[in-house]
Amino acid sequence: MVAFRSLWLLLPRPLRQLPADLAAVVVLVVATNVAALAPVIRETPLRVPLGLAFVLFVPGYAFIAALFPEAGESPDRSDEPDTPTESETAEGADSDGWYDAVSSRSGIDGLERVALSFGLSIAIVPLIGLVLNFTPWGIRLVPIAVSVSGFTLVSAAVAAERRRDLPVEERFQVPYRAWYAAGRTELLEPDTRADAALNVLLVVSVILAVGSVGYAVMVPPDGEQFSAIYLLTEDDEGELIADDYPTELVQGESQELVVGIDNHEGERTEYTVVVLEQDVEVVENETAPESGDPNATVNETVVQEQRELDRFETTVANNESWHQTYDLEPTMTGENQRIVWLLFPGGDVPAEPSMADTEYSVHLWVDVSESND
């Protein structure tokens, strides 16, 4: 307890003075960023529930807290004045008293805050994404996380400052102590046995519902597990595209490409990439009896010579992509040279790798001419 109090006193005074609900907002923002960006934690299912709350509720709640720092009351009929008698009505008594009382409320109640928090979050996050789409950072995980976190923390700071400017009795506060006391009384001190049985049934139902949803979110069904390797190039604007691959190279001169790897193996995976340079010949067989057409032919690619240009290793997290610039520098000359990138998950590479040793590969056909030097 002493150690905890010492750590608490180390926090800046504004953080220690945050209201409970705004402190929870800050904690959730920090926890979500850690779960989404930390190298090891981001691979766990923990980021799913935190991310849903972070995107669908927290930004809107912080924004509503900044707009309405004061407490509000539910618009119930208790605000209506006593029902006028017939004589009072005949004399022109004000029949709009309840409407005037409700319309004069300065704050909103808890239920309205929750509803507006969901609605505003669904509106705010896409708007932030739209703005990011026109920036150099684009719509990616880190820019989205930083932008939504910044908006939420700024809104929480404004909300805390506006609440401090109000008298204590007018500030909005989450009545969690009252909720706890009421729940404890209902569960542990029921009026009748029937109420006790219903309370137990309600608790069990809630636990089963939360457990089922949590299990479905935290342990999603296993889908197809696979990896992928591909080649990209940069266009004039610096964007990566799967087009405009080089077709003519010069021996000894390098050509820049981008090698990409996608990991959908269900776990963090180590990869080995082997780059082969092949001098191939396409042989046309006379007939293909299995096709049923006596005039059909089958082309067969025969590797005349093969050299290993390069190999490198990398580790990619589950459901993540890895891009790396690669300088291709062929050594053999001739037409229809085939450059092959072989991907080996797990790092098990044969002594003389070929396309038959892995199901993941990508290749490029090029004509390589001799250098003029």
Rank of each mutant, 00 (worst) to 15 (best):
L56M: 03
I261A: 01
E234A: 11
I229N: 03
D279F: 10
A35E: 00
A228G: 11
A242G: 06
N285K: 14
N133H: 13
V55S: 13
P45N: 03
V27Y: 09
G260R: 10
A24L: 09
L46G: 05
M332N: 06
T358M: 05
E43Q: 14
I122E: 08
E170R: 03
D327C: 02
E169A: 06
P69D: 03
V258Q: 04
D191S: 14
A53N: 12
I144G: 11
A351Y: 12
E112V: 11
L46C: 03
E237V: 11
T152L: 00
R77A: 13
L52T: 10
D236T: 05
D235C: 00
Q173S: 14
A101L: 00
A31S: 05
A101N: 05
L201D: 15
W341L: 05
Q17R: 15
D236E: 08
S149D: 04
S74N: 08
P75S: 12
P81S: 03
V316L: 03
L201Q: 14
V302P: 12
A93R: 00
A20N: 07
S117T: 02
T287R: 14
Q225L: 04
D262L: 04
E73Q: 10
W137S: 07
A145Y: 02
E359G: 12
E320H: 09
E248R: 15
S106R: 14
V154R: 02
V274F: 07
L166I: 03
S103I: 11
V55F: 13
I128R: 09
T152W: 01
V148F: 05
E359C: 07
A194P: 09
E256I: 12
E73Y: 12
Y230T: 08
V158Y: 01
G119L: 08
V200Q: 10
A123H: 04
G107F: 13
H363A: 15
R77D: 13
V26L: 04
S361W: 15
N299Q: 15
Q306E: 06
P39H: 04
D327V: 00
A209S: 15
V203Q: 05
P350M: 08
A31E: 06
D235G: 04
P167Y: 00
E359L: 09
R307M: 10
G214Q: 09
Q251M: 07
L232R: 04
Q306K: 11
V40M: 06
L309R: 00
V25W: 02
G252I: 05
R184W: 15
E80D: 15
Y326F: 04
L120I: 14
D109N: 08
L56Y: 01
V280N: 08
T297M: 01
F312C: 11
V168T: 14
Q173H: 13
I108D: 01
G107V: 13
N263S: 05
T192R: 10
I261R: 01
R193E: 15
D327N: 05
D82K: 10
T233E: 06
P49K: 05
R171K: 01
P45K: 03
D348H: 11
P39N: 13
V298D: 15
D96E: 10
P246R: 00
S104F: 07
T89W: 12
N263P: 06
L130N: 07
T358H: 04
G60N: 02
R338G: 10
E253W: 09
A38V: 03
T185V: 11
W322N: 07
V142S: 09
R338T: 14
L15W: 10
L364T: 10
H323K: 06
R311L: 07
E284Q: 08
E234W: 08
V210L: 14
V283H: 04
D243T: 06
S212F: 12
D100R: 14
E284Y: 09
